[in-house]
């Protein structure tokens, strides 16, 4: 059974490690693709550079997008994504440090599906990731035409 992947866009290696740990602790065993900056994320999604020739049908079930990124920042990534005919329906969850008003407004205006602030308290973070997984990988019906398989939580 093919589990749908998660695209994690995160430049901070600590955060990356903690996110992966949290996913693991919640038994989310879906493939997690990590992009470390905006360029990398766009390359993956648009199947360019290192990702040229990737299977077009295997798009991630959800993108966990940090905002403050080297080269191209998260909002710019989101904007390009929403401008693309094939990718504009992909669910995007902004997962970032700040809850600055401008970030919230811009994020939603550009078409983010959700906005989650990473708690400092790791326990709370694990809980947040758990709910994220349940919601986006299990409960949420993905938009049609982007892969066939539903995600699954389990071991």
């Amino acid at each position: 059974m093919h589990r749908r992947s998660i695209l994690l866009v995160e430049d901070n290696p600590d955060d990356e490690a903690l996110a992966l740990r949290a996913l693991k602790q919640n038994n989310i065993i879906n493939e997690v693709i990590v992009a470390h900056d905006g360029v990398e994320a766009l390359d993956y999604l648009f199947r360019r550079g290192a990702h040229a020739g990737r299977d077009a049908s295997k798009q991630p079930a959800v993108i966990l997008l940090d905002l403050k990124l080297p080269k191209i920042d998260g909002l710019e990534v989101l904007k390009l994504l929403r401008a693309d005919e094939h990718l504009k329906l992909l669910p995007v969850v902004i997962l970032t440090s700040s809850k600055e008003e401008q970030d919230l407004i811009n994020g939603y205006r550009l078409g983010a599906n959700s906005y989650i602030r990473k708690p400092v308290d790791f326990t709370k973070f694990v809980e947040a990731v758990r709910q994220l997984g349940v919601y986006w990988l299990v409960l949420n019906e993905p938009p049609p035409g982007n892969g066939t398989q539903q995600g699954k939580i389990g071991n």
Binding site: D14, D15, L18, L67, T96, S97, Q102, V120, F122, T123
Partner: peptide, 22 residues
């Protein structure tokens, strides 16, 4: 400055907290 504080000052704290828990 606020923006940068908002984003960058919290990230290390998350690392400290998260790895302590780990």
């Amino acid at each position: 400055f606020s923006y940068s504080v908002s984003h960058d000052l919290r990230a290390p704290l998350r690392g400290i907290d998260g790895f302590s828990q780990a």
